[in-house]
Write a protein that binds this DNA or RNA. Structure first.
Length: 434
DNA sequence: TCTGGGGTCCTAGGACCC
DNA sequence: TCTGGGGTCCTAGGACCC
């Protein structure tokens, strides 16, 4: 394991993330909801996945099924929105572009989070003021509130970010790296809230009396290694101020790509399942082309409803392609026969998905002499796919689709409370009247 | 009636080889 | 009854993340 000793580093790692990101994006689009409790629902309007500060204050829980609290939300006047991923992805791009000039290197970690690297001033002065200016800038540019955590490793930056949100005096910025004695702050973070400690590992720690970040940092390494492997060991080193997790400024090529959805109502016929799988597969093929990758194998999986008490059914099947491809027609031909294998007439299905596996870069094709089509035809197929992708990007997803994906699709996702596309479609731009 | 979706990394164990 | 040792590759499953 290669870790850099903290003492030799002047580098600071910063973690910037959007507060209640989806809920905040909705408020940017519709300022009338600012200050009101608002929640955003998952796909199919299933669960609550984001809450405004006001909704949180009402005690609404993350991940709560919507149908259980719907009445209560109505009673309390909570604004409810379906997920609008086009909006969040666009706001995310704007956020990352805004952050870029503020750091020496930026790693986009998730839709609402980025790690940054910057040099600490020679006198080890706090970066608190820098953080406050950054917050102010983002708020002015995008209307999004962010929190800024600073430390000497990613794990410490994450921890500081949490402290930035939970410490009343922090006002959204926390610099662990410039403190004389950070221990009381580490001790204030529960073990469950340490990045990398999930339910299982936290429970194991608790049983050993390790209840907070400081205790985890100071527990015997050997014991941690035996239970948590190198992952646990790295985590501990990071807590000790040794940067083990490098900043990944270039996104790594994906190893697999998945498209899956729950159905808005159970699927009971093979033809419907076929249409659903074809739909997801077309989306996955689009993703592959955008990522400039081809799949060498496809797995299709199905499952019944795990919640309704009937016997749970889950199954999957995999097919290998003789030659890796991202041509929708080729992938459909290979994968659709799996539907007959997975479908069972007496098992209503709740969810299905496709996994694109054994991904490889597009450039490898040129070196392959076993092309299924003459080179010229191959080029025409590529051009066709590119045209379809362009049409769907420009006129909206699903403008051009394969017949196998079907037109009558009662199982399709429910999104009853969707906000508009003000940042990505010209015809949806809000109009300001004087 | 109604309970999300999309990833990564690591490890253990089996198959296979010399 | 005794039944090697070491390596690679692959896969399934667990655990975690947002």
């Amino acid at each position: 394991m290669t870790c850099e000793p903290w003492s030799r580093r002047r580098q600071a790692i910063v973690l910037i993330d959007g507060n209640n990101f989806y809920a905040s994006c909705e408020a940017v689009l519709d300022p009338a909801v600012l200050g009101r409790p608002l929640v955003v629902l998952s796909n199919n309007d299933g669960c609550i996945v984001s809450r405004s500060a006001e909704a949180r204050a009402l005690g609404i829980r993350m991940g709560q099924p919507y149908f259980q609290v719907r009445r209560e939300l109505e009673r309390q006047g909570v604004v409810v929105r379906s997920s609008n991923y086009a909006l969040y992805a666009d706001m995310s791009q704007r956020l990352m572009a805004t952050l870029e000039p503020w750091v020496e290197a930026l790693e986009i970690y998730s839709i609402d989070e980025a790690f940054g690297q910057l040099s600490r001033p020679a006198d080890q002065r706090s970066l608190h003021d820098w953080g406050r200016q950054l917050r102010h800038h983002v708020l002015c540019q995008l209307g999004l509130p962010v929190a800024v955590g600073i430390g000497s490793s990613k794990v410490l930056a994450k921890l500081a970010n949490r402290l930035a949100k939970t410490t009343a005096s922090a006002t959204g910025v926390f610099d662990l790296g410039s403190m004389d004695d950070p221990d009381p702050h580490l001790a204030a973070v529960a073990i469950e809230d340490v990045w990398g400690m999930g339910r299982q590992l936290s429970r194991w720690c608790r049983l050993r009396g390790v209840a907070d970040a400081k205790a985890l940092r100071d527990m015997p390494s050997g014991e941690l290694r035996r239970r948590c492997g190198v992952v646990g060991l790295r985590l501990q080193q990071e807590l000790r101020g040794m940067a083990c997790l490098p900043l990944e400024t270039l996104p790594a090529a994906k190893r697999e790509t998945c498209v899956s959805r729950s159905f808005s109502q159970p699927i009971t016929s093979q033809s419907e399942l076929r249409e659903a799988v074809a739909t997801y597969l077309s989306r996955a093929a689009e993703k592959l082309r955008r990522q400039q990758q081809r799949a060498g194998a496809i797995t299709v999986f199905v499952r019944s409803n795990p919640f309704n008490g009937t016997s749970f059914y889950s199954n999957s099947a995999t097919v290998s392609l003789p030659l890796a491809s991202n041509d929708t027609a080729v992938l459909l031909q290979a994968a659709l026969p799996l539907v007959a294998v997975l479908f069972s007439p007496h098992k209503p299905l709740h969810k299905a998905g496709v996994l694109m596996q054994q991904l490889q870069g597009e450039e490898t094709l040129q070196h392959n002499l076993l092309l299924p089509l003459p080179l010229e035809q191959q080029h025409r197929r590529t051009a066709l796919m590119a045209t379809i992708d362009q049409l769907n990007r420009h006129y909206g997803s699903g403008t051009v689709q394969w017949a196998a994906a079907g037109l009558q699709t009662p199982w399709r996702m429910r999104r009853s409370r969707l906000s508009g596309a003000a940042t990505t479609r010209l015809d949806a731009i809000p109009v300001v009247r004087a």
